[in-house]
Design a protein around this nucleic acid. Structure first.
Lengths: 239, 239
DNA sequence: TATGCTGTCCCACACAGCGATACTACAATC
DNA sequence: GATTGTAGTATCGCTGTGTGGGACAGCATA
């Protein structure tokens, strides 16, 4: 990281976009001012002003180390009615991790990015760590393929214009019901992903297993697709 | 309600304050544009633009009825690490409600307001309904007294300048460990509140029982303080 | 048809947000 | 001690952004 977020959503209100960029940076990891600037690309004075403003509203708080983190008002505003998907992941992801022995994540699409909304990983050893709150591109990776394959036509078009995969791949993903990638988004990392559907049948997230190519091999699908589809099913039952 | 929020926090960034006012309105109850305007005091065009902007960022979503509600990004940004206090209330408040037969709430202070962050109430009959997300003044009511009694000096000063209670009352609240009120914030409603402390001993919330004076009587403390202190203790064990 | 309400869009312009700069505090190095 | 670097915080003239009255479209009701 250390690369600011040039693909963030644009609401048409600059202040709002910037404030949310600051929120997103702090949601990813506790931030001092330097990290906020690096993550958001905002000048120091601007990042500081927005962070302090968000702090006043309790959307951000400062820990003992003075770094900004998500504040209590976020959970309050979400209504105490927790996100059913997040609740489901708390049960399903640890099992999937234990079954595969690898890192597992759930991603949602947000415009032309995907957000890691939940993850679980082995306690130690070589593993692909994706922090909750991470925002990844939709242009590469098995999670991206899954989320794109079931996105609306307009979004698909926008993504395919830049992606390393094409329409043929998306057809295959839809037919097969899962996607894999090898060293596509990140060198040395392979992954498999499957769609998660809500009660109306709409694809709302992607569940993934990822790890080092050296250990996983170049055909992770053959190894994990079955487990992954079971996990997706398990998540779906809870939505 | 239907009275816009004239005591909202001021961060020094107007757009931010307004956007958060919109978020707060939608967190309290699903809103159409008219409700957003009534709650926030913003002109229609402004409220609409901000709501749509928040929707782009998934901080708000629209339900099937077209009304704005909290969006999934709020829970995601809060880190999936749910608020321990909200988790605790889910266990403790139903018990307190059943024990007292009245409505129960937990409030946090946000500047010179208090926010209802959790509640439970009897399924029917005359009861004091306080929706989660409601923002109440700190100038009257037992919850306000408790939150003020343990607030920082600067905040106490600001609140006491407008409150129906004085320093003498706060001393009493601190000495006794709970507060009561009768027809103070709202005609016909009596309540008792006790402080909830976090693991470092700081008062972070107030837990309250409230109901009709006619049923409760004019000395609700005598009736419920004990139950309330037990509930506060129970919450504290979980923080 | 008239009225009322909802959601959405437009655009001239006032002023709110901006950010380069400066300040304070602290730590590390020479 | 002097210098340098980094963090957090504050300032203020400038100008581009956010504003909101008004208009429009759609729908429901009398």
């Amino acid at each position: 990281m250390g690369q600011h977020n040039s693909e963030a959503q644009q609401s048409g209100i600059g202040v709002l976009d910037k404030a949310i960029a600051v929120l997103q940076a702090a949601a990813q990891q506790p931030c001092g001012l330097a990290e906020l600037c690096a993550e958001t690309g905002l000048p120091r004075a601007t990042a500081h002003r927005l962070a302090v403003g968000l702090e006043v509203h309790r959307l951000l708080r400062r820990g003992p180390d003075g770094r900004w983190r998500p504040g209590a008002a976020l959970a309050e505003l979400s209504g105490g009615t927790a996100d059913p998907l997040l609740d489901a992941t708390a049960v399903v992801l640890p099992k999937l991790r234990d079954m595969t022995g690898e890192s597992v994540q759930v991603y949602r699409r947000d415009g032309v990015q995907r957000v890691c909304v939940a993850s679980a990983e082995p306690p130690s050893g070589l593993r692909d760590t994706v922090p909750v709150g991470s925002r990844l591109p939709m242009t590469a990776g098995s999670g991206a393929k899954v989320l794109t394959a079931w996105a609306d036509a307009h979004t698909q078009q926008a993504i395919l214009a830049e992606a390393v995969f094409g329409e043929r791949t998306l057809l295959e993903v839809r037919r097969r019901g899962w996607a894999q990638s090898v060293a596509e988004r990140e060198p040395g990392v392979a992954s498999v992903s499957a769609p998660v559907r809500d009660s109306s049948g709409a694809v709302v997230a992607a569940v993934s297993v990822s790890g080092p190519v050296d250990r996983i091999g170049r055909k992770p699908g053959a190894r994990w697709a079955s487990d992954l589809l079971d996990a997706a099913e398990s998540l779906q039952e809870r939505l």
